[in-house]
Structure formats: structure tokens, C-alpha cells
Design a protein around this nucleic acid. Sequence first.
DNA 1: TCTATATCACCC
DNA 2: AAACGGGTGATATAGA
Length: 590
Amino acid sequence: MSDPLRPYCEIWLVDFEFSAEPGERPAPLCMVAREFRSGRTLRIWGDSLARMARPPLSVGADSLFVAYYASAELGCFLSLGWPMPARVLDLFTEFRNSTNGLPTTAGSSLLGALAYYGLDAIGAAEKAEMRELAMRGGEYSEAERVALLDYCETDVQALAKLLPAMLPNIDLPRALLRGRYMAAVAAMEHNGIPIDVETLNAIRGNWEALKAELIARVDSSYGVFEGLSFRRERFAAWLVANGLPWPRLESGELALDDDTFRQMARTYPQVAPLRELRHALGELRLESLAVGRDGRNRCLLSPYQSTTGRNQPSNAKFVFGPSCWIRSLIKPPPGRGIAYIDWSQQEHGIAAALSGDPKMMAAYTSGDPYLTFAKQAGAVPADATRQSHPRERERFKVCTLAVQYGMGADSLACRLKQPIPMARELLRLHRQTYPVFWAWSQSAVDHAMLFGWLHTVFGWRVHVGPRSNPRSLANFPMQANGAEMLRLACCLATESGIEVIAPVHDAVLIEAPADELQATVERMQAAMREASRRVLGGFELLSDAKLVFSPDRYSDPRGEVMWNTVVGLMGGMRTSATTLRTDAHLSYLI
DNA sequence: TCTATATCACCC
DNA sequence: AAACGGGTGATATAGA
């Protein structure tokens, strides 16, 4: 059997220990690197690393860089100003890919992978102790340095055992494509997202007071809060006292979701203020947003974490995690600009191209897939526009999105607020209009059931496990190939020097000097077109770009009202406690 | 008092 | 029996 590693002159197994404060770049403490074949081992403490202009190991295309969760090691490379290795094999990613969809007994950590392959490892307790020592930062005694280097070396030894164990099941060319993305991740994490720290701190500092004030004003006529907490029992008592009926969940508990509140507020307007209060209170999570001393939002992007291979950064730490009004905190520094560029109807385009359905491809290419679907189905005349047939367009749009998620007629009817037969008819029209797509979609589910797995065009795999269902399997080719496309676009862009500062599932955020932003956006869009061609066998997806120049801030239309409300209230609280500015959205509250 | 679970809100 | 894909996280309450 041929050795896939033979083309590589050197194979370096690399691990860093580093400290990582929230929002900061990793600060390397030490590095251990071992050449796999010769066993030659480098053990280098941080101060020596910092003096090296280049890595003390070969990183050219004839060498292989092997790590577990390589974005961490490559982040240390970037902190040290070192070039990225040309060939990266990330065993974390490959372990995820080999177990994806199956229940893991010991997680996807290095220890989990060792356990999975029946390899011995140091104890979890010892590992935790050393991680703590590394995270502590500051000065280290000679004994502590030796202990950290020894510990770092145990992880390299683990790599040395893991590599041969995993190699027979690794498709190396595709693994290298996945590893390549870890370098892009390191670059994006290194860059971070510029944040308006002054406003962030103002909101953080005033939020508790604002919450208490809002509750005090509204709850005086309800008495359903205890401190800052809504109490179900108290609300139930209020309902009884006021003679209001209220929907309940199957479990018998009161239904407290916003939709229920909205519907009930129509019949019983007296609950409307309570609804707005609950809505406003539930809107903020800023305490954990990870912003470094340079005012940039940085956190682990957690590549390959989701089943479909998407990144899965912490919603609490990442500025794109919480509700979208928080994004108004994104603000390019003086002299610079940012752009949010997203593929248009990415999953629809993927479904069209990979299924090869000619009508669906035509619908995508038309620029308005939803209205074109309505035309193809004969529901609107050929000269209809989104102005002339807005209702029909909306119905066919919701239907198109519903199909991507495997929605049934009942749920679609509910979403459309239309009778079930109408939803059934829409779904029937979709099947009738796009028979090639449906055959392709069904064949993916059949393949999964027959073989027990599915994979993307570049080999990201999901196994049929206890959490699989026909809808998630049918959705996998669209979402997972979308993730492939984003990863490739991030690779192409970061490698060509574009400052990509965040990936957002079907979009990227980039930054550039203000006078170069327009040109950089065009280069990014070219990279996104190329990525779509590579994934979709030549089919090009379109993208939209939104540019923001300093001193403006990023803003999402869906969050503008809430942002203005919060900033207005904050301004009022700082200047005068009695002259809070009013806003239509929170008119009940203030 | 701590933890597990259910529910809900938000994102693409 | 359930019927909307992939997620994270806060909160309220029940149970140990």
C-alpha cells in the first residue's frame, strides 16, 4: 500500500501552549515540534520564539504541518509574525469528519480522539492542570517552564500516535483543503472585528439600570416581576385576577412565547405593554462579547463544529451572535471601511446547480428565483414583477425556503397564515416545476439510508446517526456545500491578502483602507464567484455587498429601531433621568 | 444550593 | 409519533 505522506520531505507535528485572554490574540508560551520520521524535536520557550523571524521548521509545500486544531497553532504563528505553512493537516478536523453525525463517547478533543483509537494519553486532570498553568500567563519559574514544555511535548507525542492511526482513513488531498481553511481561520481570528468600544461600554454600564427602570414603570400595573425576573406563577395569578384565558403548552405550562403574546395582545390590549417589556429585556447579551484592548472582537470561530461543517462561534462572544441590533457596534476605524458581502440565495443556487435542475437554475439566474418560480408554475403572468404581484411572490418565496428545510404543508400553511390546501398546492407546484431537483434530493436521502453516510463535493461527511431524519439529510447537501463554498472563498481571499475579518455562514465581513474598499470588495466578490464555480461545477452564484466607511457604523435594517431606542435611552439616562427620549417601538414603556 | 430540563429568543 | 435544516445561550422551574 502506498504511503500518502511520501511526497513530503519533512512532517512536523506541532503544538503550542499559549495564554488567550478574551478578545486578545494568543500569546505563545512555548512550542514543541517533532519531525515525524526522524524524531528530531524542538522545545522552545516563548522568549526565544519571539526572537525568531521565521519558524524553526520547514513550512514550504514539500513539508507537512500536522496539528490538532491547527487554527490555534497557526494563530500563534501569526502572533509571532511567521508565514503560514503551505500544507496543513489538521487531525481535529479529520477526527470530526470521521465521526460526524455519530454520538461521541469522549467528545472531539485530543483526548477524545486518542480514546476513540484506543491510544493511551495523559489523564484529563493533569491536562486540565497544565492548561490552567498556561492560561495563567505572567512569569513562569524554571520548573514551571519545564513542566509546560513537557506537557506540550505529550501532546506532540499524542499526535505521533494519532497520525498513523488515522492515516488509513484520511483522504489526504481533501484533508489538506480542510487544513488550508484552518490557516484562513487563524487569519480571520487574528484580524478581529472593529468595535465602537465607547458605545459598548456605555450600554454595558447602563443596561442593568435601564432594565430596572423599565420593569418598574411597566410592572407596577402587573406585579409579575420579582426583581429582574419574570415569574410564571405571578403571571398566572394576574391572569386569574383579571379573568383572562391563556393558551397552554402540551405540558400544561402557560405558553409564554412572543407569538402567543402578540396574538393575545390583539384580543386583550392590556397585555401589550408586558409583551414589549419582555421583548426589550430579552434583547441584550453584551457581557461576554470578547473585545480586546485594541477594540476588536475576537473569539474562536470554531470551524467544522456543526454537523454540516459550518463554523460555530459562541453567540455570546461573537458580535454576529446576538440579535442584529448589536451589530451597530461594528464600526470601522478612522480612514478605513468594511463591507459585508453575502451570496444571494446561496442554498437555492446550490440546490439548482448540484441537482442540475434546468428550471431551478434558470430561476436562480433570473435574479429573482421566487417570482420566476411563480411564473414557471403558471401562477402569475410572464410579465409579472415584484411590484405587480407582491403577495404571490411572497408565497412562492416562503414555499421555496420551506422546501429547503423539508417543511410540510401544515407548517407552511401556518407560516403563510393561509389554509392548508393552499400550502399543499404550493408544494405540489414546486414538485411539478422542479422534478429534477426532487429526484436529486430524494436520491441523497436514499444514498444516506443505503450507505449510512453522505458527503459534500469536497468530502465533508455526515454519518446517519440517531439524530438524523429525512429532513436533515435532505438539507445536508445544500447547507454543507454552502459551508464548503464559504471556506474556499475565505481561503482564496485571505491568501490573496484581503483582510477578511469574519465569516458568517453565507457571507464575509472584510476591511480595507477606505480608498481601497471598493476595489477590495470587487476582488472578494471575484473570490466568491470562483468558490461557487469550484463547488458547483462551473455554476456562478451572485453576491451582494454593503459598504460602510468611517465614521459610519455597520447597521442591520432589522435592528435599527432597537438600536436607536437603546442609544436614545442611554443618552437620556446620562444627561437627565427625567427626560428619556421616546420611541414608537417602546412607546408603552416610556 | 446546585444541576438538569424545558422553553424561548436569536442567528444563517 | 412527528412532520422546519444547522446552531448558542439565557432563563425559569423542577428535582436531587
